[in-house]
Design a protein around this nucleic acid. Structure first.
Length: 98
DNA sequence: GTAATGACTCCTT
DNA sequence: TAAGGAGCCATTA
């Protein structure tokens, strides 16, 4: 579990991802001070109950979904928002949030 | 203080 | 383009 300051920064950034767009763990980590991609992943795993964060818009740098328990649900949520996936299961580059 | 772990990333084949 | 392996960094035991 990342430090509280990092969690706060990570949550703030994730909350700013527009619907229908996605970003990567590394991008988020780069926007914080001290966090790494793995730290961001850890933060997503420990999301507080009742949160309203669009955690499903966070994917791996390969533009595929990271391998975790909720990946299937994440895929459904993204498709519901209009995010498309190519034949190899990757999100189109133009959907990446800067 | 040391070692292990993880919703990752980058650099080679 | 894809697959494999080393590297990273914060957290935990």
């Amino acid at each position: 579990m990342p430090r509280p300051e990092l969690l706060e920064q990570i949550y703030t950034i994730v909350d700013q991802i527009p619907a229908g767009r996605v970003t990567t763990y590394g991008r988020i980590a780069a926007m914080t001070e001290g966090a790494t991609a793995r730290s961001v992943g850890s933060a997503m795993r420990h999301l507080p109950e009742g949160h309203t964060l669009p955690w499903h818009r966070v994917i791996a740098a390969t533009r595929k979904l990271a391998d975790h328990d909720s990946a299937q649900r994440q895929h459904e949520l993204l498709r519901a928002e209009g995010v498309t996936f190519d034949v190899s299961g990757k999100v189109p580059a133009h959907l990446l949030w800067p």
